[in-house]
Amino acid sequence: MPAVELLNISKSYGTTPAVRDISLAVEAGELFGLIGPDGAGKTTLFRILTTLLLADAGTATVAGHDVVRDFRAIRNVVGYMPGKFSLYPDLTVQENLEFFAAVFRTTVAENYELVKDIYEQLAPFKNRRSGALSGGMKQKLALCCALIHKPQVLLLDEPTTGVDAVSRQEFWHMLGTLKARGITIVVSTPYMDEAALCERVALLQEGQVLRIDTPAALRAAYPWPLYAVRAARMHPLLQDLRAYPAAHSCYAFGEAAHLSLRQPAPDAAARLTAYLTGHGHTGVVVEPVEATIEDTFMDLLAQRQPSPNSAHDQPAQ
């Protein structure tokens, strides 16, 4: 039995579709990512799974309980960390944790072992009001509060948005520890690099699933010959690569540009180097590169909207 299952779930707000016919299943003990930008439908899915929102169509279960019929049972077995900080800002760190334990008719002592590693980092601030904590600390406290009743399924809505790279890395380390204890985790993020840290991910855009797979399979699914191209100046490099006749797509990727070609050619790198040198670029390095999940995601976005530029040049209706 999957720990989380969505079957043909749809939800609109007025005339705006938020989630369109989404089906997916998360296995027990899995670390599953919902990856996509704002407006992809991530929060709506979490609100349906936490029984806070009724879907217009479709069915969903969490730990075998139906989200409509068995909503009370679900509330006891899920831990939910909403995207917006939702603890009591006027209660201290310790008071918040005790409050959430009490609501679930348990005690901090009962399940302390589960939150110990995280809570110890907050211990120096345990008498501070939670509203006065930093972003990274709030995030850790919210995770503790979502865990204190020892949930079977942990639902985390963009826990790392707006958090710096150090706190993000620590947070993902914590998720790994929780997963090792057998907790099923569904986590959403707009950061593509975090997708690689999940066992499987669903790539979402505008309420629809683009693809569900393991990170390795998503990388392998990239269909075009891909090259990392470096040169002294990025902006002119991007402009010239976009104008390259054999180019399929070109996007900046950190210090390199990723260029995909319409078709493979044995001398592609040499020809491209000559083209760029001819356009006055210096320090040109062209090498074949494995696609990242972000390459795949962008390729799926572009396929969805036949011309990526025109699609993005026109606001959605």
Partner: peptide, 17 residues
Amino acid sequence: GGVDPITRRQFWDLIYE
């Protein structure tokens, strides 16, 4: 923050310009 990876890169085109 919050936009898809293509839109994020288009924003950088504006910055470069």
